[in-house]
Amino acid sequence: MAATLRRAVHSENHRLIRSAWLALVLMAGAVALIAYYAPEDADQGLSQKIFYVHVPIAVTAYACFGWGAWKALRHLSRGQAGADMESYVAIHVGLVFGVLTLATGSIWARISWGTWWTWASDQLVLFLVLFLFYSAYMMLRFSVADGPQRANLCAVYALFGVVLIPVSFFAIRLSHDLIHPVVFNQHGPQMAGSMLLTFCVAWAALLALASTLYRIELAGKRIDRRLRALKELHT
């Protein structure tokens, strides 16, 4: 039993270190590509470079919320041990990326549209709704006592939230929003190959960063839980 646990922890730590190195290498590569390789946009100029950080962060936030919902589903359908904790940590990381999406988006909006925020854009408003929905998840989680009831409530809530992801993603395409630009449409990506490569590397870097943060946070929570159990044993 102890040997199995030790092996699992060792394997998890190994994956964490690999993920951290991958994130570091990809981040360095992405920064280099953004600074020296990707050309300046003919229309927006230098400010378009925010795209390489803003969009990958937003998509990574969606991925985190989606992962959280998947883990919630595993908790509800199979009662998988630790799935509730994994779901919570994924949503937590998603919220951090959500804050970054809103912050970088606001900065880009300020230089492109001359305003920090506009309620006229469905994409912006729906992302804010999604962000607030998952912020309320935290309120729910910390207002119910720890136990199976809290895990089930949070899992159901996380599953409801996942519906908002495609709504938020496709809103701009469905509503013909003229404010927020559409780069990826049914004809493929509307940008040069060098820009697409830079975008893909930046996205991979941010996914690796999110994965690393997720694993670090999860490892911390698991250690905390084990320590609490040990403390209870010894008192």
Binding site: S47, I50, V53, H54, V96, A103, T104, I111
Partner: peptide, 20 residues
Amino acid sequence: AAEQYVAAAYLVVFVVVLAW
């Protein structure tokens, strides 16, 4: 102004990760 805003966007990401 464009340089300042781009720098600010990247700085925000850096600061948030650092805070984490």
